[in-house]
Structures are given as C-alpha cells and as structure tokens.
Simulated scan of single mutants.
Amino acid sequence: MRVTISGAGLGGLCLAQGLRQAGIDIDVYERDPAITARFQGYRLMLSPAGLEALRGCLPPRWHRLLDAILGDARAGRLILDPQLNPIGELGQVRTGIVADRHVLRHLLLTGLPVHTGAALTGYEPRDDGRVEARFTHRDPVTADLLVGADGITSAVRATLSPQTRPTDTGVRFVIGRTPLTGQFASLEPALGSKITGDGVSLLLGAMQFRTPPREAAETLAPEVTLPDVGDYIRWAMVLPPAGSLDGMTPQEAVLSRTEGWHPDLRALIEQADADHSTLLSIRVVEPRERWTPGPVTLLGDAIHATSPTGGNGANTALRDADVLRRCLIATPQDRLGAVEHYERQMFEYGAEAVRSSLDALPSLTR
C-alpha cells in the first residue's frame, strides 16, 4: 500500500510516522518552500487521548525522548485585574502535559520523505481504485490513498467536499512568546490565568521543558535533531470585536491596549520575540455532509478546525492520525472499508471537538 499525504503539519506527520512503522509506503508533500519557511510553534496542551495517539504513531525508541521534551502545565485558574490582583476564578480549566509545537514537529519530521514546494493542484480517482495526485513542480503521483492534512485552506477538501468551508468567528487575537527569566517571577500566579481589563483579555502559559530539547535528543536519540529552544511564556491577547492591528506590529498593538498595566506584564510584551508574534483570526471548519467513500480522505484542520479555546485542535488531529493508522493496519485488504470506518468515527468526534471549542469561545472574549 502507498499513501500520499498532503500537508506536513502535526497530524499529517504523525500519520506518516505511524504508517511507516507498519511498513506502509508514504510520501509527504508540503506547499511551503521549506520546512522552516514560516514559524509554526507555540505551546499546546496535550490531552491524555492526544498523547496516547502520539505515542501510538511514534517509534517506541523515541518514547523516552518524547517524555523528556514535554512540560507540566500550570493552571492558576484565576481572573486577575491589570495589576495582577485576583478578581474571580475561571471555570473548569484543563491541566496536564504541554508541548512545544515547533519542537514536536521536528521530532515528527525525523526520517520522513517530505517534498517541499509541492502544493496540490488537483487529483483524479482512477478506474483501478487508486488516485492520481498532482503537485506543483512534480510529476503526477499515484497512490492507494490520498490524505488531505493540508489545514484550514485545504486544497484536497476544496475538491472532495467543496460545500465544507471555513467560518470566521470574527474573533481576533495576538499571540507571542517571551523567554522565561527570573524577571517574571511575579507573574507566577498569572500562568494559567486570565488578566482582564480595558475591554481586552490577556492569557499566559508557561512552556518549561523537562529537559532542553536539543540536549534530550543528543542523549536519548542521536538520530533526531531538535531545535535549541529554551523555556518561555506564551501570551495571547484577545482583541475586542472588529479589533485589528491598525498598522501596528503585534507587540505595539498589545502595548497600546495595556497602558498602566503591571510593569512586568508590559515588560513581558516588550521583550517578546518579534519574529514569533502575530495576529490570528479564529476560523472553524465543521464536518457536516459526508462524501462518497473512496481513495481520498481528510485529517485535522482540513475537516474539523477548532477554536483554540477548546485546546483540542492538535489533539484531534493526532487522534485522526492514530485512528486512520489503526484502521488501515487492521484491514489492509479492504482499504476503502478501513477509510470509511475511520471517517465514521472522525466525523463524530471531530464535530464534537468543534462544538465544544465554540461553546468555550465566549469565556475567552469576556
């Protein structure tokens, strides 16, 4: 069996690792001109199911390395005013294990055949039950299965399920990261909490690795090369309705909305890595109408993009990878039946993930 995966995000790469372990031929095609063409790394929360799916797809020899590069989430569960005084409590807040997306992606890339600068331009099912995919600057590729793991603007979805389109929630937020130093000790109670004032909310979360990623790889898995990333605070500011940068940089936009806030909060934004601060819109994709089962399917944000408030986008994509892997391995002679079995499960839990993330969105914006 040969599987072609369009998209080198966490979900697509996790699937590729899992299938490669099972002896299934895979190729990954990525539209970006290079793996590091754009920054793709912030702290993310791994649910028990997401971590289990990740372990299921990774080679067992890397499990110790995975454990070493994770961190433990802190959850203050407080609502604070701009001077860091408690004024309330958050509702149910998920705690657990955190990972850095940039580091995790490099682990998942290890040893995989990834073709960059290869945007999908179309595909055609063949009479023999296989599929021919076309990518820019490449000869056509024939596979038994094409998996669209190409994100919220998925080119695979545009053909497979053109009626399924992203919905803009109207919510905008600025996100960035700042090295975690002793200067920010006063922010300890704010980690895992929400600071609210002047019509905006600021959320902070720490990424503290159990072992520095590069050091962990050199010690536990020398064949893996991980980026040299230090501990940091991930911050995100939710802007008011119709909020924008108004021609400012992301940092300037946050600083303009935090005049008079606690000086350590101001310093946190001022010292952020400017290259890793950006404005994002919250868009979702809801899986609704099923397509006719065939040699093409979707995974991750391509079919169920969630609001980040649910904390389940990456976890659901990892679950997709593991479920699809298990289905293909269980019935290798009935490939289409395996894909249909995967899709029935994925549509159910994927739709629930989107709904729960939207239900949590108001708590972020007020």
Results as ranks from 00 to 15, higher is better:
Ser281Gln: 10
Ser186Gln: 11
Thr159Gln: 09
Leu65Ala: 02
Ala353Asn: 02
Val103Trp: 00
Gly182Lys: 04
Pro287Cys: 07
Ser161Phe: 04
Asp27Thr: 12
Asp246Asn: 15
Arg355Tyr: 11
Thr331Asp: 14
Leu66Gln: 00
Thr309Ser: 15
Gly311Gln: 02
Met45Ile: 14
Val141Tyr: 03
Ala22Met: 14
Gly129Val: 13
Glu89Leu: 03
Ser154Gln: 06
Val141Leu: 07
Pro362Cys: 03
Leu66Ser: 00
Cys57Val: 13
Pro60Gly: 07
Leu108Tyr: 04
Met207Gln: 09
Val103Ala: 01
Arg177Phe: 06
Gly300Tyr: 04
Thr36Leu: 05
Arg55Asn: 06
Thr110His: 12
Leu109Asp: 11
Leu364Gly: 13
Gly176Asp: 03
Arg266Ile: 14
Glu52Pro: 06
Leu265Ser: 04
Thr136Tyr: 08
Ser281Pro: 14
Val238His: 12
Asp67Leu: 12
Ile233Asp: 03
Tyr29Leu: 09
Gly71Ile: 00
Ala99Leu: 01
Tyr349Cys: 09
Gly71Lys: 00
Ser47Thr: 15
Leu120Trp: 08
Asn85Val: 13
Gly151Gln: 02
Leu265Ala: 02
Ser201His: 07
Leu13Cys: 10
Ser47Asp: 05
Tyr29His: 12
Val28Met: 08
Ile329Asn: 05
Glu188Gln: 14
Ala216Gln: 06
Ile69Cys: 13
Arg126His: 15
Thr297Gln: 06
Asp72Tyr: 06
Phe347Trp: 13
Asn315Pro: 07
His262Arg: 07
Gly176Cys: 02
Gln208Cys: 15
Gly182Tyr: 03
Thr167Asn: 15
Asp359Val: 15
Cys14Ser: 14
Met45Asn: 13
Tyr29Gln: 03
Met1Thr: 11
Gly41Lys: 05
Arg234Lys: 15
Val103Gly: 01
Ser307Val: 09
Ala158Asn: 06
Asp168Asn: 07
Ile24Asp: 04
Gly50Trp: 03
Gly300Ile: 06
Asp25Leu: 15
Gly199His: 13
Asp246Trp: 04
Ile152Asn: 07
Gln83Asn: 06
Gly260Cys: 08
Gln40Thr: 08
Asp27Trp: 03
Pro166Leu: 05
Phe173Cys: 12
Gln83Val: 05
Ala34Arg: 09
Gly50Arg: 09
Gly300Ser: 14
Leu54Pro: 07
Leu268Met: 09
Ile269Cys: 03
Pro59Arg: 13
Ala253Ser: 11
Pro250Gly: 05
Ile303Trp: 04
His276Asn: 12
